[in-house]
């Protein structure tokens, strides 16, 4: 494929896919180690009612109100999960399970009761996203990357996802040491004056930002997969947190690129004519990577069970 075809049709979806995958995988590492990995799943489900409510209020599919609605719903859910967990003194998984199924179900009901047939808002879109349609028609080739006019036609999801990624990366870079200590040993972190609750909440909000931005661009399947699969596979490749983050980014990028290419061309190679869902294929590739890491990764045995405890 030459630049004339690749740049307008494949470059932007590929980049958006990669940015979304990495933005979710980065906080996913900490969520996984804190046994909160399902929070990505939860967020990607709970944003649905937020988006539907935003649509009902504005009557149109426009980015800003939808993002605000999604973010609002995510924050409501996070606060509810924390409240249920702390007040009910139950494990986080159960608190999330209760909140996100309820809110997603509410979103589906709302969606069914409203007339969204004229707009591109349905349960399917919420799940699979619409990665293939995020094309850059103003581009004519690689030279368009330096063409201000053509750049103005970039899909809005691209800069949005890039900003989300930068925000997530900055948060983790700045609070790296505090995140590491409080994830490993919360009690000790408190004695060091680290504000554990605030930091934990900030991590979840960061994850929510990544999830909402990615949900808007690529649907919830990728969000769910990228929060868990690359970090879980990365854990089995290394025994340091720094190494785990590095591997998780590599796996996220690999999933996005391979998934996109396989979805577009895989069926063709097999003799079929239609491409398959890129989001579905990206999530599948990340699952295959996880399976391979679980089978062949050098650090896959659980060594951490303390002897005699």
């Amino acid at each position: 494929m030459n630049g004339e075809e690749f740049v307008p049709l494949s470059l932007t979806p590929l980049l958006i896919g990669v940015f979304a995958a990495v933005a979710c995988a980065l906080p996913g590492n900490f969520l996984l180690l804190r046994k909160q990995a399902l929070i990505g799943d939860a967020i990607s489900h709970v944003v649905l009612p937020g988006i539907v409510v935003a649509f009902l209020l504005t009557g149109a599919i426009t980015a800003l109100p939808m993002m605000l609605g999604a973010a609002g719903a995510a924050i409501v859910a996070v606060v509810m999960i924390e409240a249920i967990r702390r007040l009910g003194k139950i494990e986080p998984g159960a608190a999330m399970g209760v909140v996100f199924t309820t809110m997603f179900a509410g979103g589906v009901l709302l969606l069914e009761q409203t007339d969204t047939s004229t707009v591109h808002l349905d349960v399917e879109h919420a799940l699979y996203g619409n990665l293939e349609s995020l094309i850059w028609l103003d581009a004519t080739g690689w030279s368009s990357l330096w063409d201000i006019e053509a750049l103005a036609g970039l899909p809005a999801e691209l800069p949005r996802m890039l900003f989300a990624l930068i925000g997530v990366a900055l948060f983790i870079a700045v609070f790296w040491r505090a995140l590491k200590i409080s994830t490993f040993d919360e009690g000790f972190a408190r004695t060091q004056g680290i504000r554990v609750e605030a930091l934990g909440m900030a991590l979840v909000i960061t994850a929510a930002v990544a999830a909402v931005a990615a949900f808007d661009a690529v649907g919830s399947i990728i969000v769910i997969a990228m929060f868990i699969c690359p970090p879980a596979a990365a854990r089995m490749m290394t025994n340091t947190l720094e190494g785990q983050l590095g591997w998780s980014v590599l796996f996220a990028v690999t999933s996005a690129v391979m998934g996109y290419v396989l979805a577009g061309y895989g069926p063709l190679w097999l003799g079929a004519y239609d491409a398959v869902s890129a989001a579905g294929m990206i999530a599948t590739v990340s699952g295959v990577i996880l399976a391979l890491a679980a089978k062949f990764g050098p650090c896959r045995s659980r060594t951490g069970a303390p002897a005699g405890a």
């Binding site: 180690l33 590491k180 190494g243």
Partner: peptide
Amino acid sequence: RASVDWDFPTRVIDVVLMGLYR
């Protein structure tokens, strides 16, 4: 000792360095 997950991906030296956080 049982209050933390010893499967956490970190090395002995990194744990000791946590003592230098302040």
